[in-house]
Design a protein around this nucleic acid. Structure first.
Lengths: 205, 205
DNA sequence: GTAAATTGTTTCGTATTGGAAACAATTATT
DNA sequence: AATAATTGTTTCCAATACGAAACAATTTAC
């Protein structure tokens, strides 16, 4: 093995081609079909896959070609994860939801930003969303790069916003623009305009 | 056609087997393989798929069986969406940052939503952001709950939006409100007002 | 520089898929 | 009830996927 550079893939070995879910696909297809009151003929017409083939798939009598899977996904206008994840059952009591009304987040001011933390009353989240008012009006107001693990997505609610980041030229985003970047790369926001800028910010760990 | 109950699937017709992305899969596989410094032999060992087959897939000389796709997904320990996401092109730069200007995302229509995928030219993201126009104007337009792994955050750009979710009462959010919830819990958005609603949506796996 | 090893590609034979059509099993229609 | 339509299943065969092995094209070893 040519040195797997500590990347994404070093985990598995797959001792012996044990299938992930040999059945799920057919079951899922049937489930989707029935829950929409479709016949095999309907699905056949929508997807261009023969009735017979569909039948065999649903009954686990064959492993469809990727082409066929594509036709199904396209023709039924469903997305791939939806087709593969077993979607039955009750989600096992994983019912978690919360919301924050406009302006009612938790204030969290820093030297250069005015954060409003959102949806904080749900713990153990994969993402941390907040709305931020950018007070800084020049890059020199920053001491050093902000840098941490994770990834960030931001959407400009009120622009313009200048994005400074390591290894890159500054970039100016305006209202409705958005950006995604690796948080380990040093970054900072500046409001080049007259007024303070506002961005919606989501950080994933 | 046995009355498609105005459900999820009435959109497409797929006149003639026009492929969705005949290339993407092979390209994506190669990309993943190379970015991890793996040889075809490595991947073959990890997945149990023959070198020759892998070569053909990468060169678009065949459409692999679903079984093979499963072996790839399992053996390389990547997830399905990741495998199907379009190759990252040039990105907004060399490595880990990209942006999307207002309205220039990738359209992805479904029966009830009009998604605009954002920042797609960065692969292997922890989050998938998109802007969505909610077309559905009644809950009955949905065939079944949307349900998948992960968590979601959404911010209402243009309200009102009614959020339906399993185990809960419907909740109406207005412009500037936001919400966070577990994606395994069935969910659906409806635009109760006259016009279509718009939300900014971020999904984390 | 030559040999050996490693890499990706290409044959080629076998096994499997996938569609047309025949079949069986229900459901509608008269 | 008999007939026709509609549904899902099964045959059959052409088309195609898949793997073993041969083949090139590099790279590494000596």
């Amino acid at each position: 093995m040519s040195e797997v550079s500590g990347g994404v893939l070093e985990r598995t070995k797959n001792e012996e081609a044990e299938f992930v879910q040999p059945l799920v696909l057919g079951d899922r297809l049937k489930q989707i079909r029935l829950s929409n009151n479709l016949t095999l003929a309907d699905v056949s017409e929508m997807t261009g896959v023969a009735r017979s083939t569909l039948s065999k798939i649903e009954n686990h009598q064959l492993s469809p070609t990727f082409q066929v899977v594509q036709k199904l996904v396209e023709g039924l206008s469903i997305d791939i994860p939806q087709l593969f994840r077993a979607a039955p059952a009750d989600a096992g009591g994983a019912s978690r939801r919360t919301w924050t009304k406009h302006g009612e987040g938790t204030p969290h001011p820093t030297a250069t930003y005015e954060h409003e933390l959102l949806c904080t009353d749900l713990s153990q989240r994969k993402m941390v969303p907040f709305k931020t008012t950018v007070r800084a009006h020049s890059f020199s107001e920053f001491g050093d790069w902000v840098r941490h693990d994770g990834e960030e997505f931001l959407w400009v609610l009120t622009g313009p916003v200048a994005v400074y980041s390591e290894h890159y030229e500054p970039l100016v985003l305006d209202t409705g623009d958005c950006m995604y970047f690796d948080s380990r790369m040093g970054h900072a926001l500046v409001s080049p305009g007259e007024t303070d800028a506002e961005v919606l910010w989501v950080v994933a760990r």
